Simulated assay, not measured.
Amino acid sequence: MIVTIKDVAKKANVAPSTVSRVIANSPRISEKTKKRVREVMEELGYYPNFQARSLAAKSTQSIGVIMPNSAYHAFQNPFFPEVLRGISKNAHANKYGIYLSTGSTEEEIYAEVTSMVQGRRVDGVILLYSRINDKTMKFLQETNFPFTVVGRPDQNEERITFVDNDNIFITKQVTKYLIELGHRHIAFVGGSLDFVVTIDRLNGYKLALNEAGIPFNKDYMVHEEFIKDNGKEALKSLMSLDSPPTALVTQDDLIAYEMISHLGDMNIKVPEDISIVSFNNLMLSEHSKPPLTSVDICIDQLGFEATSCLIEKIEKPDTLPKRITIPTKFIERKSCERRQS
């Protein structure tokens, strides 16, 4: 037998409208009444039809979370579970559900987002990446649909709400740190130039070199594509240069772990022969061998603040665009050593 709202009201000795207000968590209803109604709902096995309620309210109480590739590949990178932790915490507190994207390619992601928006399956969208010339972001702008971005937008950043670290500044600082340790041959490893975060970090790296009077050497750049194809061979090519690097700035801790492993196979010791600094400060970083010097970018806070901004845009559509900069912390461990002259 299907339990209705009227059955709950009769059993709890309240009006059906009171049950509706309890479901909506209305402040007009006392906590004592809410407790009694919820106990009856549980006793009778009554589950509110939130889909019908959303249609009536023209709201889904759901947030679309869009990853740069399929969930399968994204979750292999600890960044995404961690940023989702921040999103989930905030969404739950504000009674929003989460709708995860499943697209694997840029085209599939675009098709999925357009379907979400046109079908009104979500109230707003969080993009967990910022891609160069991203048509998904352009579509969200053109349709004036509520969205926020984790990362600095490639274009129109003054008109888009986004949450990010100051990637240019922090990469300049970590590169400067290596320079102050006496390193002048410093490579930049990993990251796709399709994404703004890589470009910003590369620019910070170049700024530090320029200020120190060190020429930029394109041979010291190893892109993500080469690492994916064969990380070990890419590193071998780098270390076979006439003047091989004595330090690496890596895009994230996962790439740093891979580099440390390959260097070990090549009998190159970290930090005695080469220093490594990275980003994300994953849980394993302090337990790696050697413990990894890394920048804590406060991943969960990125997600939490992006969700706050999105909910504000959903509930107050006239909210002006804003940039939220999340502070970072440099965690110095044992993967860097002063260069002996």
Score class of each variant (00 low, 15 high):
Val14Cys: 01
Cys298Gln: 15
Phe147Arg: 04
Pro48Asn: 05
Pro48Ile: 04
Phe169Pro: 00
Asn203Ser: 08
Val197Met: 09
Asp273Ala: 08
Leu127His: 07
Ile214Ser: 02
Arg339Val: 07
Val125Trp: 11
Asp134Arg: 07
Pro16Cys: 11
Ile186Arg: 00
Glu337Lys: 14
Ile98His: 05
Arg36Thr: 07
Thr136Ala: 01
Pro321Ser: 03
Asn280Val: 09
Thr325Cys: 09
Thr105Arg: 05
Ser278Asp: 04
Glu233His: 14
Tyr72His: 12
Ser101Trp: 13
Val125His: 09
Ser26Ala: 06
Asn167Ser: 06
Met283Asp: 15
Ala71Phe: 14
Val163Lys: 05
Ser20Thr: 10
Arg159Cys: 09
Asp123Cys: 08
Pro16Gln: 13
Val270His: 00
Glu305Lys: 14
Ile214Leu: 05
Asp253Thr: 03
Arg152Met: 10
Glu286Val: 10
Ser59Pro: 04
Val277Asn: 02
Tyr110Arg: 11
Ser62Asn: 14
Glu224Asn: 12
Arg159Asp: 13
Ile199Arg: 04
Lys228Glu: 14
Leu209Tyr: 01
Thr114Lys: 14
Asn165Val: 08
Lys32Asp: 12
Ala111Glu: 15
Leu44Phe: 11
Val277His: 05
Asn144Thr: 07
Ser101Ile: 12
Leu241Arg: 09
Phe145Ser: 01
Tyr47Gly: 07
Ser101Phe: 07
Glu233Tyr: 12
Leu263Pro: 03
Met1Phe: 13
Gln141Met: 14
Glu286Ala: 13
Ile326Cys: 01
Pro16Trp: 12
Thr319Leu: 07
Phe79Gly: 08
Met41Gly: 04
Val83Met: 04
Asn77Leu: 13
Asp164Lys: 10
Ala306Asn: 01
Ser115Met: 14
Ser26Ile: 04
Val113Met: 03
Arg201Asn: 00
Met283Leu: 15
Val270Arg: 00
Val122Asp: 11
Phe226Arg: 15
Ile186Cys: 00
Thr250Val: 09
Pro271Leu: 00
Ser335Glu: 04
Ile109Val: 11
Ala12Ser: 00
Ser88Gly: 03
Asp200Trp: 07
Leu100Glu: 03
Tyr96His: 09
Val270Ser: 00
Val19His: 05
Lys172Ile: 04
Lys289Ala: 15
Thr33Asp: 05
Ile126Val: 08
